[in-house]
Design a protein around this nucleic acid. Structure first.
Lengths: 211, 211
DNA sequence: TTTTGTGAAGTTTTTCACAGCG
DNA sequence: CGCTGTGAAAAACTTCACAAAA
């Protein structure tokens, strides 16, 4: 199956919305309604959902519970992902304590930092190691996903350590700057400052249309 | 001038890279090299830069300092943007203390929160108001940009308060969930959980290509 | 009738390929 | 020659529009 990247991002949003609708007791919902609530075109919603089989009922819409379960299934993981967080600074700590990350789909197995104050302690219930231990700890604990929230200059060496564990498959990087990784390792970057700069650019140039 | 959204995001990255190259004493750089360092095709780099005039030298490449200044100019602001941060929780505090946000282009003018512990105090040098004061404070201080880091359920009412100040032009939202705003207000969303879910999806489905 | 599912059309973004200039 | 700048081609993504199902 071939699915576009933007489709997956929207799927996560459909899922959230459907959970809410389900709680509120809604039974059915149309692509039109989903689109209005999330700011997408109805045709976009239908196209996205159609990639994963015929799940709606013509003339009726989508059954909220059924569609929600269906999306959960699509986004489901074959196992609980073991995750490490490198960099327990402000941003790292914020992610760690973010309740949205308390999902049955993933589990923080280890923290890594360079600060002696943090090393050897548990933070939000997760043990913090010296980042030099990354290769061994990640190998032992079979950690496949790394969330990178270290200062920019430490990012590359940090990823290199993670790679040398032999277990790493994906990285979520909050670090600005470039990461060089082998082609079989997936990197998703979240560049907050770039997003803010983009906003400011389009604020000063309203004619250079955004959306 | 009509510029694509992805181009602006890349421009921010070019800028960062060029600052580094400049510090390291490099004089010229080719689109090829920029591309390799940031993970883009050389043609992409040239196309992006070409939207803003002929800045390179054929047969030579781009002069690092000149190109850097040129991009600074493109991304420059007509004024220092006055910014408010709503929600001084973990995420909000992380943003506030993030040195990358200490830019001459913007300035945090006010914080808003509901926590009595925070209201009336300065946090990282910025005064924190009760979020109910948003309309008056934002109007008085002429704050045009809001960074939204409040819990999802508070997001919409928070934006509504900001809108009623009559000053709001742009929002950078870390909140999950939808925001309804007038069409002349720009919203840029950063959905961290969606990014992580996307990463996990493409990890389990390597055939559904990412990038 | 209503609303889905989907080819086809449209739009946006990326990549190619090469002319043109230093 | 080497590398940029740029039309043209390709790819990716979105929207349209309508047949088909409930």
């Amino acid at each position: 199956m071939k699915v576009a990247e933007p489709t997956i991002e929207r799927l996560v949003q459909y899922h959230r919305l459907l959970e809410t609708l389900r709680e509120e007791g809604h039974r059915v919902v149309s692509s039109q309604q989903i689109g209005e609530m999330l700011g997408f075109k109805a045709s976009q919603v239908r196209k996205d959902l159609s990639y994963f089989g015929e799940i709606g009922k013509r003339g009726v819409g989508y059954h909220v519970g059924r569609l929600c379960d269906h999306i959960v299934e699509i986004l489901s993981s074959p196992r609980v992902w073991r995750i490490a967080l490198a960099g327990v600074g402000n941003m790292g700590a914020a992610l760690l304590s973010n309740t949205a990350f308390r999902s049955s789909k993933m589990r923080f197995e280890a923290l890594f930092d360079a600060d002696p104050e943090k090393i050897g302690r548990e933070i939000s219930g997760v043990y913090c190691w010296n980042y030099t231990e990354m290769p061994t700890v990640m190998a032992e604990k079979k950690i496949e996903v790394l969330i990178l929230a270290v200062p920019a200059r430490a990012a590359q060496s940090c990823v290199d350590l993670a790679i040398s564990s032999g277990m790493l498959r994906g990285v979520l990087a909050f670090t600005q700057g470039t990461l060089v990784v082998p082609g079989d390792i997936l990197v998703v970057r979240v560049d907050i400052l770039a997003e803010l700069e983009k906003l400011l650019f389009f604020l000063k140039q309203p004619e250079a249309v955004l959306e």
